[in-house]
Write a protein that binds this DNA or RNA. Structure first.
Lengths: 267, 267
DNA sequence: TAGTGGTCTAGACCACCAT
DNA sequence: TGGTGGTCTAGACCACTAT
């Protein structure tokens, strides 16, 4: 690196800034390959590890995609899949006959796929039991679903249902839930979703999630803990969605409630 | 590293897993210091850079906090500040006399502070103009606020207000908005917040945000684009909040609306 | 097989922090 | 001042991808 400045930024940072400029100015377009680590190193007169550190900075900011054996590529910005309260509405189910995920993905001209990978009966974990108003030892049905767009994994969700609701229904034992999917089957058991509570946060994926969701470096996951409340304001299901934050967004439109009514509707 | 296995995981991954186990089993408690890079390297018979790579993996997962010149420390899990629709309610304003941020932070026995760092008149950026139903050249007031808990920066927000609303009101020129703060002043101008739209996503912080929000390594930010709609379902303000995801969460409770009504309320 | 990224080593010097 | 993390070098071998 041309080290004209005394005590300037580290060479890896300078090189990263240089490359970042080239990318943001469009001199390298999305999909283009960057020079290899070895080329960058020799051209900028730094060690290969230094060029490597610069590329890591760009990857950590989500600007480039590092592919073993192929090279480093400028990342394509992706349009987000957006999910909000309407995904649970009966009208949407009736209109499209599609699950909310399928409807959203189809609208973006991509091909949706949902795999139910496991259905079990287990004791409720503490946080789920709390939200469902159960004891920790109470049995629940646990359903795990993986969601794909064009065979790219974009999110997964784990749904917890009190066993007394799931028992005897496809909810407790069948991967194929039939027309209208999950919430149609809840209606069959007398639970109509009228209010939802969604708690949202974000974090970096665990190594396992990173692998299974194919999350690129430098991309966090959104974690949505969703609680469905029936017509009597009683919780009847909890789903924890984990979504790639670069491919998903949430879009909530709602009335401004006053705290008193809100507290009531929560119990 | 004891390389009993042929072609096993990289030594840095093995060391990271070992340390991760020690932390999650509680043998190292939050706040405890890990052995130094040099000690780890010699004890596990690897180069210092390898021990360093292992620590970086832990930092990227948010498990440890690396402090230059001091050491590497097990991170304290923090309770989240939670924000939902009730933060905009009139009842909360009247009850507590506090802004929603102040109320939430106070409830967690921490000391809130909000700094308004700039108020300007500027042309509306494209995404803001779209949400406010303005043209891109239309003037808006831009207010920038920084939010602290115990002098720790936790989020910042940029609020955009059509100039014809802000003009002549403290909204357009005064850092101190008086009792009831922002939404009380909107009510003075005839805009009562009745519906909100919040679009949520997450990403890694930019280097600048990382510095100004003091975001630890391996922690993403939540980005909430908030649109306030008045009693006539017209947008009158947009605020983009950027929050440390390790310190903030969102908590929305809302009725399940059907798509038809929703579309109407959006325009 | 050649070129790419992934990892590792051994050693060096700098910047920061506590004593 | 001594110990910590931050960065860098020069070279090596491995794993993956394309030809």
């Amino acid at each position: 690196m041309d080290d004209d400045q005394q005590r300037s930024e580290p060479a890896s940072h300078l090189l990263a800034e240089l490359l970042r400029g080239i990318i943001t100015r469009g001199e390298l377009a999305p999909g283009d390959r960057l020079p290899s680590e070895r080329v960058l190193a020799s051209e900028h007169r730094v060690a290969r590890n230094t060029a490597r550190a610069a590329i890591r900075l760009l990857a950590d900011q989500g600007l480039v995609d590092v592919q073993h054996g192929r090279g480093v590529f400028v990342r394509h910005p992706r349009k987000l899949l957006r999910f909000g309260a309407e995904r649970y509405s009966r009208a949407l189910r009736d209109e499209t006959g599609l699950s909310p995920f399928r409807a959203e993905v189809t609208q973006q001209h991509r091909t949706p796929r949902v795999d139910c990978t496991s259905i079990q009966q287990t004791p409720a974990p503490a946080d789920v039991a709390e939200r469902l108003g159960l004891n920790q030892s109470d049995p629940v049905a646990r359903r795990e679903n993986w969601y794909y767009a064009d065979d790219e994994p974009v999110q997964y969700g784990v749904t917890w249902i009190p066993w007394n609701i799931a028992e005897g229904s496809p909810l407790g034992n069948s991967a194929d839930l039939g027309p209208g999917s999950l919430y149609a089957r809840f209606e069959d058991t007398g639970h109509s979703i009228t209010t939802i509570r969604e708690e949202v946060t974000a974090r970096m994926p665990s190594p396992d999630e990173s692998r299974r969701l194919q999350v690129p470096d430098g991309v966090p996951v959104l974690v949505v803990t969703h609680t469905g409340l029936n017509q009597h304001h009683r919780p009847f299901e909890v789903t924890v969605f984990t979504m790639r934050a670069d491919l998903n967004g949430l879009d909530y439109t709602m009335p401004v409630t006053d705290p008193q009514r809100l507290k009531e509707s929560r119990l």
